[in-house]
Nucleic acid binder design. Structure first.
Lengths: 200, 200
DNA sequence: GGACAATTAGCACGATCGTTCTATTATCGG
DNA sequence: CCGATAATAGAACGATCGTGCTAATTGTCC
């Protein structure tokens, strides 16, 4: 039921709506995103907002894709300019930490993951697809580090990806609940140790 | 505004309500817990449920404390029977993984953490207190392992606690989004490596 | 068993939810 | 600049939300 914007102002309005929706979803989760509040902050009518997406679920999907696009642009793309191997892997990791830091009101992707990891449906499927893709990128970056001889050849790339993911989750947790600076230092320290004496 | 149950059946009803509320909060988060649904699954009137807690926020607080109590009873207490040091730390870690596995519909504590880590208020304060206490327990268990000579004397207990926390978060993530068995193996493998060649 | 207090139900309230329908206004290609 | 179409507003809908208020019912203790 996706009405696709066909006029210039149409896409502009839709983009603005997505930005507002992103902010709401960051703070309150995809489940806390309502058409009424979105219309209020965007300064338009509820039905006007509704017409842009067709349903609340389609709005949530659009916000999710929007967030994933931002993540890729802000974390992965810049890191690809670093040399393959340890340098690029570290750029990804640091960019990822910065992503968490920059999203002061929360990360919509992580919120959505916790909200929908146990609720079958299109949203969960989309989230699984996003996280699968990202984990695959992580694994690739680790494998390149192995291929560059900067990690032992028998290193398990998936295992390292799993542990890196955990480090960022712990960073997110502590940064938002306690203090961000110690959490950042602990994450980086763990990263350096993990890639200094990696899994066999 | 906490009406404290004063009659025998009063506390029984309240306990049953808390069990139902726990199940709802596990699946939908504390934010998705409503008096109406709780009344429906408990088979009583909305105002009857309301009278037991005084407000929705007090209900949420009660569920949070209930969950924390369950966690302590199921994870920490049994582990305290293991010998101080590596054995106890591993018992805590494995019990923690089992906690995640047993809570098939989700962990209300983790959900609440993500939901309220950016929203000031009593709920957030309670969550911070819970997580502070738990992290302190973790640190204690690591320190005992150091004192037992099963970890190098210059080990940073807080750093190890941080990384263990991350491993469980990654386990939770992958178990609920992908497959649980590989996630369990990766967590245990990381645990063994972390405590075999710990942070200096 | 009677009296008092605790428990629960019933009902109503204003608010907000997602959605549908119908007009009205704005945009843009010809 | 006109006509087709997209964009937006407005009102209404049934549902659910949290929270009061008032009764009726139930449990407990002397």
């Amino acid at each position: 039921m996706n009405r696709l914007a066909a006029t210039r102002k149409g896409v502009a309005t839709r983009d603005a709506l997505l930005d507002h929706a992103y902010a709401i979803a960051a703070a309150q989760g995809l489940e806390g995103l309502s058409l009424g509040e979105l219309a209020r902050v965007a300064g338009m009518s509820k039905s006007g907002v509704f017409a842009h997406f067709g349903s609340r679920e389609d709005l949530q999907l659009a916000v999710l894709d929007h967030a994933a696009q931002r993540f890729t642009d802000q974390v992965l793309v810049p890191a690809l300019r670093a040399r393959r191997g340890h340098a690029r892997l570290r750029a990804i990791f640091v960019g990822w930490l910065d992503w968490v830091r920059d999203n002061r009101d929360g990360c919509p992707i992580l919120s959505a993951t916790i909200e929908y990891d146990g609720r079958p449906g299109i949203l969960r499927e989309r989230i699984v697809a996003l996280q699968t893709r990202w984990r695959s990128e992580l694994r690739r970056a680790v494998q390149m580090t192995i291929d560059a001889g900067e990690l032992p050849p028998d290193t398990d790339a998936a295992q390292v990806g799993f542990e890196l993911f955990g480090l960022v989750l712990a960073y997110h947790h502590d940064a938002r609940l306690f203090e961000i600076e110690p959490a950042a230092q602990q994450s980086l320290r763990a990263f350096d140790r993990l890639l200094g004496s990696p899994v066999s």
